[in-house]
Design a protein around this nucleic acid. Structure first.
Lengths: 149, 149
DNA sequence: CCCATAAGCGTGCGCGGCGCACGCTAATCT
DNA sequence: AGATTAGCGTGCGCCGCGCACGCTTATGGG
């Protein structure tokens, strides 16, 4: 078949990922939140909000880059008062990255803004189609071709 | 509402984009196709296949990065015989990037591999859900929050 | 109990891609 | 015809990334 489902998804997915680097979706999203929070540091905040207090190594595995990068980004966020480094009570080598209250508020604000954009993008869709798409996207990410590297 | 549709999509989308950089989806995809074709040059090939012969500037707009980057990537692909630079017959300043036969074959192979991966990921879904998801994703990318930068 | 090995962390370093800006050629406008 | 504009390739500086090193601390074996 000329246009299988796989091809269709592959095509759309490729364009999606490509466009995302252009960052029309994230453009200006971090406006007014200080220079420390941008599209580079955002994954750390977001991931940290998802996992809770967490070592840099574990967080790196979660968001998919090197431990060193996470550590550096965390340092930037720490300087801005959005992330705190706490000693792990169970292991004196380890350091737990934690969101401060300001950090939590920041990620909440960002998620709100992003959700708003997406909401408006989906607003014109047929309701059940939007519902299935949202569910499908979640399922695709969780059970999809990303399981393990 | 605590978990609006927008939040759901935002969450899944963020994880998707983050995971994609980790490239579990694209990992090993370009195996055996020579050193010139990788996840960096792939967008140029893919975009070129979509647009047909095209200037570097236009292609840059299409895939969302700087003209210079496209030009450099094209040079790599040109050296590998996958892309050819042709003078634009209508404008002697302009240069049209074109896929060679080998380039076309290469992008066809890549799309095939990627589609295969996605197909198998979607295979276990309820059929109509997969269908709606695929349609939705396409719609989301084309009409969605990416229109214009 | 003590020493060797391993785990966790931060950081210096080299690599590579990206965007800006320059110089050049060719088209367009007055 | 001269001036301005558009299109192209490329040199340059910047920044993020992954590797590897040194340090501290936990763990396991003699």
């Amino acid at each position: 078949m000329e246009h299988s489902r796989g091809h269709e998804v592959a095509d759309a997915l490729g364009r999606l990922l490509r466009r995302s680097t252009r960052a029309t979706l994230y453009a200006g999203l971090t406006e007014g939140l200080g220079p420390a929070v941008d599209d580079v540091t955002y994954p750390v905040l977001s991931g940290l909000a998802r996992t809770g207090p967490c070592s840099a190594a574990d967080l790196a595995g979660e968001i998919g880059l090197d431990r060193s990068g996470v550590s550096r980004r965390a340092s930037r966020l720490e300087a801005a008062g959005l992330v705190r480094r706490e000693p792990d009570p169970d292991d004196r080598r380890a350091v737990l990255l934690t969101l401060t209250d300001a950090g939590s508020a920041c990620v909440r604000e960002l998620r709100e803004r992003l959700a708003e954009r997406l909401e408006s993008a989906l607003a014109q869709w047929p309701a059940d189609e939007a519902r299935i798409f949202a569910r499908g996207l979640r399922r695709f990410v969780e059970d999809g071709p990303f399981t393990e590297a």
